[in-house]
């Protein structure tokens, strides 16, 4: 079912298309079962950034008030992209890993189930 409209056409560009990011891209990522940080985070980053650099220098520091961040080993994580199983290569870039503009990544870290073991 499509939108109903008056006139000859109803055709507008997506507000969050990649060309609005000046060569960068927008990515979304959540560390499951660490819900004191309420929602998946969003980042504007260059596609040639190494995935490991992102995790260690950008993503992990954002969880600085969570005690689990000291213990995490991302390589032991269970990864998903667009809610489907997926395995990143940590020494490759976003682009080489197939991470595109507006990709949604989630990672679970078995054994680190958040504060009190209840996903906080």
């Amino acid at each position: 079912m499509a939108v109903k409209f008056i006139g000859d056409s109803y055709d507008f560009p997506c507000a969050n298309r990649q060309e609005n990011y000046g060569g960068d891209m927008n990515i979304y990522i959540v560390w499951d079962h660490h819900l004191i940080y309420c929602a998946p985070n969003t980042y504007r980053l260059p596609p040639n950034m190494k995935f490991r650099d992102f995790l260690e220098q950008v993503f992990a520091p954002d969880y600085f008030q969570h005690p689990d961040v000291e213990k995490v080993d991302w390589e032991k994580g269970v990864w998903q992209m667009e809610n489907q199983p997926w395995q990143p290569d940590f020494d490759k870039t976003f682009a080489e890993n197939g991470i595109a503009h507006n990709s949604f990544i989630r990672v679970a870290t078995p054994g680190l189930e958040g504060l009190h073991g209840v996903g906080n």
């Binding site: 959540v30 079962h33 819900l35 667009e82 809610n83 958040g114």
Partner: peptide, 8 residues
């Protein structure tokens, strides 16, 4: 209730 829901 412990898993964020994010659909694409």
């Amino acid at each position: 209730p412990l898993m964020n829901c994010c659909l694409v």
